[in-house]
Simulated scan of single mutants.
Amino acid sequence: MTTPNELRLLPWSGPGDKPCYLSSDDPEGYMSRLADSIEAIQLGTASELLEEASEALDNEDTSHDQMRCLVGELTGALRDVHRVATSRGHLRTTSDPRGSAY
């Protein structure tokens, strides 16, 4: 079984927006694969929103309300990407035999 510092931060939150963690020795297990799949979706969504934001900035006809909505979506996507980066950075640190991710 994994030790407490090897828990994987999952790409979703629990009640009260608290972080959820996975304790598993099997990176090919159901929950690990589910987390990988959700992370891929989140990263894909962020990429699409980035492209949409670039287009909106280039379009002089983009309304204030459209930009406000886009900023809200980008905020959520950035939160997701930050969680993925935190999780992957932590996993990399705990799996690196030298004890450093960089």
Rank of each mutant, 00 (worst) to 15 (best):
68 R>E: 13
89 G>A: 08
67 M>H: 14
94 T>G: 01
46 A>E: 06
97 P>G: 05
29 G>H: 03
101 A>K: 11
39 E>I: 00
15 P>V: 00
86 T>G: 13
68 R>H: 11
24 S>E: 03
55 E>M: 04
3 T>K: 12
95 S>E: 12
80 D>E: 13
8 R>G: 00
70 L>S: 06
56 A>L: 01
102 Y>D: 14
59 N>K: 05
86 T>D: 15
81 V>S: 15
40 A>G: 14
74 L>I: 07
47 S>C: 09
22 L>H: 05
99 G>W: 07
52 E>M: 01
54 S>T: 08
39 E>K: 06
80 D>R: 05
37 S>D: 13
94 T>L: 07
60 E>T: 10
62 T>C: 04
54 S>Y: 01
32 S>P: 00
20 C>K: 04
2 T>C: 09
73 E>C: 07
63 S>N: 12
13 S>L: 11
14 G>P: 04
101 A>H: 12
2 T>S: 13
12 W>E: 08
5 N>C: 02
60 E>F: 01
34 L>M: 11
3 T>L: 14
73 E>I: 02
100 S>L: 13
57 L>N: 06
9 L>Y: 05
79 R>L: 07
16 G>K: 05
40 A>D: 15
3 T>Q: 11
10 L>Q: 12
89 G>D: 07
67 M>R: 11
46 A>W: 01
60 E>V: 09
12 W>P: 07
82 H>T: 14
8 R>W: 06
29 G>W: 03
97 P>S: 12
17 D>W: 04
38 I>Y: 02
24 S>N: 00
10 L>E: 11
76 G>L: 08
44 G>H: 04
87 S>D: 07
84 V>L: 15
66 Q>N: 04
7 L>M: 10
71 V>C: 08
83 R>H: 06
25 D>M: 04
34 L>S: 03
86 T>I: 07
6 E>T: 04
25 D>R: 03
4 P>H: 02
99 G>K: 09
33 R>W: 01
56 A>V: 02
56 A>N: 01
2 T>N: 12
91 L>E: 15
37 S>Y: 02
81 V>R: 12
2 T>M: 12
6 E>F: 06
90 H>W: 14
27 P>W: 00
31 M>A: 05
11 P>G: 10
42 Q>R: 06
28 E>K: 10
90 H>R: 08
57 L>Y: 13
95 S>C: 03
14 G>V: 03
8 R>V: 08
10 L>K: 08
78 L>D: 15
34 L>F: 11
77 A>Q: 11
27 P>D: 00
29 G>N: 04
10 L>T: 05
72 G>Q: 13
52 E>D: 06
48 E>L: 13
